[in-house]
Amino acid sequence: MSASGTSSSLEAPGASRGEDDAVVVLDGLVKRFGETEVLTGIDLEVRRGEVVCVIGPSGSGKSTLLRCVNLLEEPSGGRVVVRGTDVTDPDCDIDAVRRHVGMVFQSFNLFPHLTVLENCTVAQRKVAKIGKAEADERARANLERVGLGERGDAYPAELSGGQQQRVAIARALSMEPDLMLFDEPTSALDPELVGDVLEVMRDLADEGMTMLVVTHEMEFARQVADRVVFMDGGVVVEEGPPSQVIGAPREARTRDFLDRVLNPTHER
């Protein structure tokens, strides 16, 4: 299990890594909201099968970075290349790219008027044009995978937050993506429900899914991530294996942030 191994040994499987191996490439990504520059020239690469966790204080731009990958936010400058397609190119078919990029939101965003099963089939049917029988089967398999095989006929409002977030993961997986984006997936959950969701994400990572995860769960990042990126003020301050960034941070800003997160009540 990846949790027991050290991060450096995990990097071994991806032996040959050329440009084709990169699922996401951010090249000088800039994002401005009006006058404020939220991201100031981010360079980042996520390779196939890699789990990258982005951590940092609120307002550091990490969610914006994630949303620039599937163009929920329009980048103001730089290049974003996803699966070999430059999504910042105005001619690119962003819908086609998004079909292969799953996204999980902080507030779940399940479709409340559809059942759990329909949530997992609607995009398959309407976007990928898959037949009902096959779509249902795929959806059931993914609900099974997140431990909710029995709840297909329920409506989202009838589920707990943790169950809703697991359905959201199953919904994204039903499009058979080869990259999953997670935007603080456990931040809106009651503490006792966080574990189930993290468990599902850990299984996904073990199965080799490429994942870009914005999170405040330091323990998850430490155990599951191949690489941790610490952001502050719109720049990447520090980047490396979790043993380094979380275990032995080099930058003062990283140390200060981790100190606040890991020992919230301690006296300075």
């Binding site: 819908d95 939101f105 507030s107 399940l110 995009a123 919904r171 499009m175």
Partner: peptide, 23 residues
């Protein structure tokens, strides 16, 4: 209808028109 609904639909690859119609 919350913005997040459209974002979720678009992130699954739906076009703007499809998201409006279905979601």
């Amino acid at each position: 209808v919350p913005r997040g609904q459209v974002e979720a639909a678009r992130s699954l690859g739906m076009s703007a028109g499809r998201a409006t119609l279905t979601i």
